[in-house]
Amino acid sequence: MHPLRKQRLIVVCIIVIGASVAAMLIASALKQNLNLFYDPSSVAAGDAPIGRKIRIGGMVVKDSLERVPDSLTVLFKVTDYHAEVQIEYTGILPDMFAEQEGAIATGQLNGSGIFIAEQVLAKHDENYMPPEVAESLKAKKKINSATIERNSELTNEPILIPFTEGANEQSNYN
């Protein structure tokens, strides 16, 4: 290769590598701020500010959804399987919102640890399958989770599954 072109090639490499390193440094410095939402654990640990607009995300706890009579207000809890946060929301929930599914709420944490949401979004996972497949998977899982529950009773330890692993595997959470 011509020396001049070689030199330009090196310049091109330096630009790309330099920009990548700079972007990496910025990203790691802003790591926390680049997250869309707080998880319930960091709320429980007191990391989330009170009275400021934030987002909280997690799995909607099974059997936690309550509707306040004669209003659009709903109460539910979200969890990351380490901690739970009580959320209060007045409005219409998205169609995909369901218990044991991911949800992200925007709003403010009040003094007593209840999150007053002004917007609730449903987070769906990356699993796509026809309804029949989902049915048969569900049937299989019932057998599996029964065995897991039995095992966890033996060891007496909770099974912790991270929130992002997808909704389907978490039917054994209580």
Partner: peptide
């Protein structure tokens, strides 16, 4: 980062999560 967008369904190293 935690994102509203789901992660990739077509995976190169493991089984894809789309039927």
């Amino acid at each position: 980062w935690s994102s509203l967008h789901q992660s990739a369904s077509i995976k190169f190293t493991e089984e894809s999560t789309i039927a």
